[in-house]
Write a protein that binds this DNA or RNA. Sequence first.
DNA 1: AATATCAATGCAATGGAAGTGCAATTACTG
DNA 2: CAGTAATTGCACTTCCATTGCATTGATATT
Lengths: 138, 138
Amino acid sequence: MQKIEKLLESKNIRVTAMRLLIYKFLAEKQIAVTLSDIENAFEKADRTTLYRTVKTFEEKDIVHQIDDGTGITKYALCENGCNCEIERDLHLHFHCNNCNETVCLTEHKIPQIKVPDGFVSENVNLVVKGICDKCSGQ
Amino acid sequence: MQKIEKLLESKNIRVTAMRLLIYKFLAEKQIAVTLSDIENAFEKADRTTLYRTVKTFEEKDIVHQIDDGTGITKYALCENGCNCEIERDLHLHFHCNNCNETVCLTEHKIPQIKVPDGFVSENVNLVVKGICDKCSGQ
DNA sequence: AATATCAATGCAATGGAAGTGCAATTACTG
DNA sequence: CAGTAATTGCACTTCCATTGCATTGATATT
Ligand SMILES: [Mn+2]
Ligand SMILES: [Mn+2]
Ligand SMILES: [Zn+2]
Ligand SMILES: [Zn+2]
């Protein structure tokens, strides 16, 4: 995958085997993953390396962090061509109470939220909890 | 404060000195507090007691938990006459990136959020981050 | 190619917060 | 005043996030 290498280089991230693997792993998954998920997928690698790799990706706006309320931070690849450097991609996240999976609903942007006078809104986190499409059985 | 005692009794919570103190503490504060905040306010009391007191309040719908994305759960009194037993009070929470305080904006209800077909929405967490009224200097 | 330099990785340890088991204490009941 | 049940305090555990430091690996320079 030359594409991934190109992407990493364009963000000034050195291409390493580990980073390519983790990127591919994130790209395959359609859901947000925890560090433990990554850990289980790469048992040979050290936890710290995985942690720091994801953090690097996060700093360079390749992945974004998701707080879905489970208390465990999850990560997902940013949308292709997102502008995280300029402005957080304010899409909706959905957490399934049944299968415990969290997905990015990138096509569902967060509506403008009114705040009282004196308050300045800079960022919004919106998580909907319920039953996902796979679990609702249709 | 006979009122607090009445409230606790109406929720089948035994009135104890500790519980009255913690309730008053939460009532005085206009912001959401962490367990550590309570701990600092009652250094004589044991952390576990404070923890369990808040949990009891939460179960009995006297306080609600707030996940503002800081990774530390916060708590705030429910609105007077809220119907948390029946349906979570879906109001907005605001987290100030400057003073790090989180407030309930109880008058700002969360708008209806559209989710894709097959998804069932049961609950919504909406946190706006930015600068609060105290910090924005007006 | 050998060396110097800097980044990436692995290992060990730490810290913070949430949660639990059990014994001691306190409050309620008859 | 017992007897019983709930509350409180202490110690301990678990889980995740994070850091320090030594080691390995890659890159650039001579
Ligand atoms: Mn997302
Ligand atoms: Mn609130
Ligand atoms: Zn599901
Ligand atoms: Zn503020």
